[in-house]
């Protein structure tokens, strides 16, 4: 027990010493946070900086670490930033394929007229409310650029 108490007091003394001599964690934190891009969270414990959050690419991750390292009082940097995965590209069907598929999808909706141009499906005519969702679901699966719904809903 005595050894533990002695050890504890040494730790307290040591932390007081550090706190007195080097910039405070909170100050380091706010200084780095101000320089980092949005989406990055900065935490500082005893001069050790931890970066968390999501960045757009590897370069942004490296840069964020450099900013943190350059800060006075930052002893080390733990870089836990993750790179945002690249988005799946938007696939838009070619007009001939889209036209055929739209004709198939709208066949059961005789009051609906559908035109396809440059990937845009334009709907005219009328439809009842219950069928509208079904029709929209069918058309959205065909990879159109846009569905321009000008239908009158009954």
């Amino acid at each position: 027990m005595k050894t533990t108490k002695l050890f504890m007091s040494m730790v307290i003394a040591a932390s007081l010493f550090f706190a007195g001599c080097s910039p405070k964690d909170a100050d380091i934190q706010s200084a780095i946070q101000a320089k980092e891009a949005a989406g990055i969270t900065v935490a500082v414990t005893k001069g050790e900086v931890t970066l968390t959050g999501e960045v757009v690419d590897d370069a942004a991750k490296v840069k964020a670490e450099e900013i943190a390292k350059a800060e006075k009082g930052a002893k080390s940097v733990v870089n836990n930033l993750t790179v945002k995965p690249a988005d799946m590209p938007v696939v838009i069907a070619e007009d001939p394929i889209l036209t055929k598929n739209v004709a198939d999808a709208t066949k059961d909706f005789p009051t609906v007229k559908a035109d396809v141009k440059d990937g845009v499906v334009t709907l005219t005519g009328e439809i009842n409310k219950a069928s509208l969702i079904t029709l929209m679901q069918h058309l959205s699966a065909l990879k159109p650029k846009k569905i321009d719904n000008k239908l009158t809903v009954k």
Binding site: K129, I133, K143, N149
Partner: peptide
């Protein structure tokens, strides 16, 4: 689950008239 998302879509854009979303959930 798919139908639920379409209900939410319909609440935001009643009758899907805005033409600013393509919701392709299979």
């Amino acid at each position: 689950t798919k139908d639920h998302l379409w209900e939410v879509y319909n609440q935001i854009d009643p009758n899907f008239t805005s033409g600013d979303l393509v919701l392709n959930v299979n």
